[in-house]
Design a protein around this nucleic acid. Structure first.
Lengths: 124, 124
DNA sequence: CAGGATCCTCGAAGATACTG
DNA sequence: CAGTATCTTCGAGGATCCTG
């Protein structure tokens, strides 16, 4: 249990932590997941995701774009059409994200059960 | 690309999304990661993680405990000693979390590069 | 349609001090 | 040591309106 070994990153002020901050945010994860199935437009994403404001979605997309994970492609037309897609780099994030979402799906029940047990204790 | 297929969860108001909210937070991920190597005490965690306030750490631990991912074990003594460890359920989260952290580590460089390219454009 | 600009609020989180 | 309590600030994010 020696944390000074290499491989024990993610702690303190390492690049991995910085990088994690990019994606350790609810919307980023969900957006990447949603784009995992192919390019989507702003409105499509909003409908698919649900519960995200226009502002937050744009903000999240800009952030992901700024980090090279998402590409914005504007179709000249009137009214404008804008498509977002994962970049090659962004696509590599899909594995971990889906691993996470699979876990979330598989363990939703257990988590909620624990939550409820808590609630009951708290009520007593 | 049909989102109505099963397996396309994580969108809208599904249990997976609720569950994701539990862990889609910076500190939660890092704490789980840190506990992945064995039980740790409050102070140890604070030192290992770095940049987290006492308050936030306690809060995060309570949350994880409330969701059945972490167990709090108090050793009667003076001064009190408290150990935190992953529960069995919590340990199952280790896979996804490490998958994520490995990604973060491997792609830190690429991410930062994209970031910098952006910064330059913005400066111009 | 996509998204900038503005205004406003409310809660997340730091600082500080105290306790079992 | 491992917290709790209190106070305060600061910015994330919603609502609304406007534009190319």
């Amino acid at each position: 249990m020696d944390f000074s070994e290499p491989g024990d990153v993610l702690l303190a002020d390492c690049p991995a932590r910085t990088t994690l901050d990019v994606i350790a945010d609810k919307w980023a994860v969900v957006v990447v997941f949603a784009l995992g199935r192919g390019p989507r437009r702003h409105t499509e994403l909003r409908e698919l995701i649900g519960g995200v404001s226009k502002k937050m979605l744009t903000q999240t997309l800009r952030k992901l774009e700024g980090h090279g994970l998402v590409e914005r492609r504007e179709r000249p037309a009137a009214p404008v059409r804008v498509e977002y897609r994962l970049t090659e780099l962004g696509a590599t994030l899909l594995g971990p994200v889906e691993s996470l979402s699979r876990w979330a799906e598989d363990n939703a029940e257990g988590i909620l059960a624990a939550q409820d047990r808590r609630a009951e204790l708290h009520a007593a």
